[in-house]
Each structure stands twice: as C-alpha cells, then as structure tokens.
C-alpha cells in the first residue's frame, strides 16, 4: 500500500525510477570493468540491491525520505521503486544476452 501511495505521487516516482536505472548502469559497468567473478544471476541480484541502496541513501541525503514520511510513506518504498527500474534493466540485459548467446 505504501508503495502504491508513493507511485501515485507527482514527480518523485519518475525521478526515483530514473535514479535506479542510472545507479544500475553505473554499477553494471563497474562490475564488468572489474570482472567480478560470481555467477551472472547472483551478480544481477547484487547490482540491483546495491542500486536500490544507493538511491535510498541519496534520497535520505536529499531529505526526500522525510518529505515522504510526512506523507505517511516509510523509507522502503523508495528502495523498492529504485529496485523496480534496476530489476527491469537487469531483466532486459539477461533477455538480450540470452538472445545473443542462444
């Protein structure tokens, strides 16, 4: 319910989705550059989790979590919203990689 309340707000959900996607891209490039040696599925989960955590910390820094708290929305939907876009991009990458590989 709290996630729905956040997604219905004007402005902020789009910004959080964008930040989640951006964080995912940076982390994915960093992982590829560093040749992180774990399985692709595990790497995808770690990258999405880190992207969500990064966006959450950034929202705390920008005091957006306080703004949302006054709207009755706790911190976790912020991370969840960022994870949605990171997860979607990760899924897209897996699909494209699977198509190319298969």
């Amino acid at each position: 319910m709290a996630l729905l309340h956040l997604l219905r707000l004007p402005g902020l959900p789009g910004v959080l989705l964008l930040r989640g996607g951006l964080a995912w891209m940076i982390l994915r490039f960093a992982a590829a550059y560093a040749s992180v040696g774990i399985g692709q599925v595990a790497l995808g989960i770690v990258v999405c989790g880190l992207a969500a955590a990064t966006v959450l910390l950034d929202a705390v820094r920008r005091r957006e979590t306080l703004f949302l708290a006054n709207l009755g929305i706790p911190w976790w939907p912020v991370a969840a919203t960022a994870a949605i876009s990171a997860g979607a991009l990760e899924g897209l990458l897996r699909a494209v990689a699977g198509g190319v590989g298969g």
């Binding site: 402005g11 920008r62 005091r63 306080l66 703004f67 006054n70």
Partner: peptide
C-alpha cells in the same frame, strides 16, 4: 523549513 520539504521537487 529544513525537514518537511524535498529541495529537488517543485
């Protein structure tokens, strides 16, 4: 003025 506003939002 510090806590209840999100500076980046309009």
């Amino acid at each position: 003025q510090e806590a209840s506003l999100a500076p980046g939002l309009g």
